[in-house]
């Protein structure tokens, strides 16, 4: 189990390093998909299976699909992967940064504290804690739900207003 967690941590950080090292957007979107799948696994390992499901459905299923679609806007004739010179240099630099970060701040406690310390990570539970917590949005945290709904409605107006092409033609070829 510990090695499995280590692999997911590695995938998460590695995927974000691919996003950060400025490749073509195709590879960036692929790296973000990899790291968000790893993030779902990490959250499950920490005992938040419902929150992980939300992350999987909304973030990976909804938003990243839209992102992968939008990457088509930035169609490079010669996409740069991490094997190219500048991107590879950045990638190596970030890996060196990560290893240094690990060496300075990891310390002795790195393998000592390793393991799953979540509330319901071990054993079988009928009622999930995070499920109860999310249901607070329908009760005491109702104001949060109202604000979230208002934010989404506002985003609809904002997006429509930003992409409205007044005199420039609504359906121009982008």
């Amino acid at each position: 189990m510990v090695y499995f967690i280590f692999i997911t941590f590695f995938c998460l950080v590695g995927g974000l390093a691919v996003v950060a090292c400025n490749p073509s957007p195709y590879f960036g979107a692929a790296g973000l998909v990899l790291s968000s799948v790893a993030a779902c696994t990490v959250v499950v390992e920490f005992g938040g299976s419902f929150v992980s499901l939300i992350l999987f459905l909304i973030y990976l299923g909804g938003m990243l699909v839209v992102f992968a679609y939008s990457v088509a806007l930035a169609s490079d004739p010669f996409p740069e992967g991490i094997w190219d010179m500048s991107v590879g240099a950045y990638f190596t630099g970030y890996l060196v940064f990560l290893v240094g970060f690990l060496a300075v701040f990891g310390g002795d406690s790195f393998f000592y504290n390793f393991g799953v310390i979540g509330s319901e990570a071990s054993g079988f539970n009928v009622v999930r804690g995070d499920f109860e917590g999310v249901s607070l949005l329908y009760g005491l945290g109702g104001a949060g739900l109202v604000i979230c709904g208002w934010g989404l409605l506002l985003t609809l107006f904002v997006v429509l207003e930003l992409t409205r092409g007044m005199s420039r033609g609504g359906l121009r070829v982008i």
Binding site: I147, G151, L154, V158, R164, G165
Partner: peptide
């Protein structure tokens, strides 16, 4: 943070009113 986000989201179309 939510207040700051709402604030940022709301000012964006005001800035780009002229298109």
């Amino acid at each position: 943070w939510v207040g700051l986000e709402l604030n940022t989201l709301a000012i964006i179309p005001i800035i780009s009113t002229m298109h």
